[in-house]
């Protein structure tokens, strides 16, 4: 694929759709950021292993939840708002005037109605696109605030707390095993031999 084609595609795809660009690049950005943050915890010697057992799953959960919730929530909020502008539910005065002038008010809010496909759309094209871009950008920003700053931190903490309990149990078990030499004969072993004398010499 040559550069010209890539640039033309970018222009066609995002030139009239900045909200979509924010969702797509935001998702890619979170993936990269998650990878970097994981490495930061892993290589930080000042964080004790017990806390790393919380922070690493927290970051991993944070990353996965962030990416998923960012994409799902942000694109849903953006798409709902975008469609609301296309079907006239959200409008400015010029768009409303246009709908009234062309007797299209009864179609407002119908999901199969698209102002862009109406006959005289050229009359308000510029005004409509500028307004829709603004709604898209505000909706994408609101969606990302909701997903990244409220939903994700709550979900990731739930997830990471569970992970910490499990990881600490494993660590405690490991420490316990280290305390007991493997060839030390315990009461439990002795009782086991008494119960199953034929199994050991």
């Amino acid at each position: 694929m040559n550069l010209d084609k890539v640039l033309s595609n970018l222009y066609k795809n995002y030139g009239e759709n900045p909200g979509k660009m924010l969702v797509h690049t935001g998702t890619a950005g979170w993936i990269l950021s998650c990878a970097a943050q994981l490495m930061a915890i892993w290589t930080n010697d000042k964080i004790p292993p017990e806390q790393k057992t919380f922070l690493i799953p927290q970051e991993l959960g944070d990353g996965l939840i962030n990416i998923l919730s960012f994409y799902i929530l942000t694109s849903s909020v953006k798409n709902l708002s975008s469609k609301a502008v296309l079907n006239g539910k959200i409008a400015n005065k010029a768009i409303r005037k246009y709908l009234e002038k062309h007797n299209l008010t009864d179609k407002i809010g119908k999901i199969d109605f698209n102002i862009k496909k109406t006959e005289n759309f050229g009359d308000i094209k510029e005004d409509f696109n500028a307004f829709k871009n603004g709604v898209d950008v505000i909706a994408s920003t609101a969606g990302s605030i909701l997903s990244c700053n409220i939903v994700t931190p709550i979900l990731r903490n739930e997830y990471a707390a569970k992970q910490q309990v499990a990881a600490n149990n494993v660590l405690a078990q490991k420490k316990e095993n280290e305390k007991t030499p493997y060839n030390r004969f315990t009461m439990k072993d002795y009782q086991s031999i008494l119960r199953h004398p034929g199994m050991r010499i």
Binding site: P18, M21, L22, T25, G26, G88, K89, I90, A91, N92, K93, R96, I108, G109, A130, F131, K132, N133, G134, V135, D136, V137, I138, T141
Partner: peptide
């Protein structure tokens, strides 16, 4: 139904134009 007034319309259009990533 939401019809943006003059100020809100200006705000939306400016946001679409000025808020980059």
């Amino acid at each position: 139904n939401f019809v943006a007034g003059k100020k809100a319309d200006k705000f939306y259009k400016a946001s679409g134009r000025e808020i980059s990533s």
